[in-house]
Nucleic acid binder design. Structure first.
Lengths: 354, 354
DNA sequence: CTGAAAGCGCTTACAG
DNA sequence: CTGAAAGCGCTTACAG
């Protein structure tokens, strides 16, 4: 309607309200003490002028002048929407988006720096692009120590979804509390009478794997038992199973990706799960499962991890309250399931060879 | 390593290269003629200095100074990741993201302005926030004429996914070519010998509904037949079916959401589809289907629509080439299916009451 | 071919 | 309680 096609600026508002542009800014974003310095009468006039002009802040200018934009970057190390990758990213992003909506921040999704494989944030000028945002949530399957170190060095607020470590400082993250969850699962087996309980973990140096091992060891130690680990990465599930039987193992605590293969190997050898071998799973896998098994174990709180990661970023932006914990562990949910059963205390279920 | 924690600016680069800051800017983004004005020797020095300093442009400053950020906003009228809504938004967003990755733009997802229902872009200061981006892709189930009119008025580059109209100018969009697709489906039924073909459409004023009706009328007119429409919105599928039978209809061309109910009603009355009634579907519904029916009809090219919408935005940013079409119709894919069969020319399939 | 200068629209000391 | 001024890091006329 109005012929004016240019967007209103603070200067326009100021002119209409008969005050200085500084005052308009103060009314809008004056921090703490500053905000209070405007008289009610003036504030009223400014507010009215804002309404009349339809003024809305220019985020680029805000950002450049050192203010906040309420934009948080989301950097994923692969693209998100193609269905292949979405199994992994999706639950996390649901959490991030929910929390973003709740707290009123917009999400800047970085997808442009792919350049094929080994896509790195630092080298591709990505860190620079991030600066449009107040902070950034990072999301990827692996570890990216150089990226994280660079972010730390630049003192840029960020959080990784999942525990990560990097040289040069404490990485902020929101991860699953794998240690207590694994401890609980192991305790559950112990309470069922199992004594020969083995941990079967992946053989990466990944932080989350270490956490699971720790929880297992704690539970075993408290029960006065010797932790047993089968760290031969090259074993097939079948060979692994044979080793378990030789060792008289009655229960296995297994990382999420290895549980199904182990169960299949057991069934293939005519064994019953949980009759002959109890299997508990340490986390639900990211891919949709083909078999319909009612696993005993715990669920990874992916949505909560995403939401908390955003909160960890936000916490760095307003370090007002006492809550300055930048490494958040989210509890996992224990699921009773039916791949585990009771075991007479001293009777090894698996004896000799078949 | 280096103690410097501040990010490098063009001024830093300039100092190191022994040139002016203007020259650095020219090397990086000089448009056309300007770019050419820098001598090779100087360009070399600047480029080297950029590498040494690890300079990356500050997008906020770029944007404020009137430059491009290679950021395109994506405004969805509902949240995206919660699974409830993702059925609708997902395929479109896949297309947008793919194209963004291909063309090297980042996506700014606007999620913050929900404010419950009736969430509008204009009133919530959303248009202002958009200005961080070079342009914007809009995505929603309904029509939002006020928002679109405001965007047009402000001359802000955007594109809607799906055909839309608004007062104040031509809305840029990327939509499905419903008219020719519906025409093709109708022709298919005509070729099979059907003469009494009815169009069953939703009763909204939605643009895409109009397109379908147009395609149907064109095909019928060419065959010298009278188009038949049953525009009684309050009819149940069963009553609708009874009307069809009374009218001696042998084939129905049905919008995506009404096809399944109509088929169920037919089966419930002991009729065979396609034996007694052929049903062709105008588009695949957005929700996952419960019944496994091999529908005859066409598929909505949702991913391509998303990708093209981004391209429509980009086209407005660089109107160099001759391709200035801002209303793109993407062809739909015809699917033969098995809910349609041949019909003897003059023998009405449905006669009398059951 | 190169540079000094204005300006984009904000925030934040610094004066009154 | 309020305002004039500097500055954030760029782009783009405008001079040389």
């Amino acid at each position: 309607m109005s012929p004016q096609t240019r967007r209103a600026t603070q200067a326009d508002v100021a002119r209409l309200a008969g005050v200085s542009q500084t005052t308009v800014s103060m009314v809008l974003t004056g921090t703490g003490a500053a905000q209070r310095r405007v008289s009610d009468a003036v504030r009223e006039r400014v507010l009215r002028a804002i309404e009349v002009t339809g003024y809305a802040a220019n985020p680029a200018a805000q950002r450049l002048a050192g203010g906040r934009t309420s934009i948080v970057g989301v950097y994923t190390y692969e693209s998100v929407f193609p269905t292949s990758a979405s199994d992994f990213y999706h639950p996390f992003l649901e959490g991030v988006e929910n929390e973003a909506e709740r707290t009123g921040v917009d999400l800047l999704m970085f997808t442009s720096m792919s350049a094929g494989t080994g896509r790195r944030l630092v080298s591709s000028g990505g860190v620079g692009r991030l600066r449009l945002a107040d902070g950034c949530v990072l999301l990827g399957r692996h570890s990216y120590p150089e990226d994280l170190a660079e972010l730390l060095r630049q003192d840029f607020p960020f959080a990784f979804v999942g525990r990560r470590e990097a040289p040069g400082g404490a990485v902020p993250w929101a991860g699953a509390a794998y240690a207590p969850a694994t401890e609980q699962v192991t305790d559950h087996l112990l309470a069922l009478g199992h004594r020969r309980i083995v941990l079967i973990n992946e053989f990466t140096g990944h932080e989350s794997i270490e956490d699971r091992a720790k929880g297992y060891r704690v539970a075993m130690a408290r029960a006065g038992l010797q932790p047993v680990s089968l760290d031969e990465p090259d074993l097939t599930s079948g060979e692994l199973l044979d080793n378990l039987r030789t060792a008289g193992v009655t229960a296995a605590v297994v990382s999420s990706d290895l549980a199904a293969p182990l169960r299949r190997a057991a069934l293939a050898r005519g064994l019953s799960v949980p009759g002959d071998l109890s299997i508990a799973r340490l986390g639900d896998p990211e891919t949709v499962e083909t078999e319909d098994v009612d696993w005993t174990g715990f669920l990874i709180p992916r949505r909560e991890m995403g939401a908390e990661a955003l909160r960890v970023v936000l916490r760095q932006l307003t370090p007002l309250d006492g809550d300055d914990n930048l490494q958040a562990r989210i509890p996992c949910t224990f699921v009773p399931g039916s791949t585990v059963s009771a075991q007479a205390a001293d009777a090894p279920a698996i004896t000799g060879k078949a």
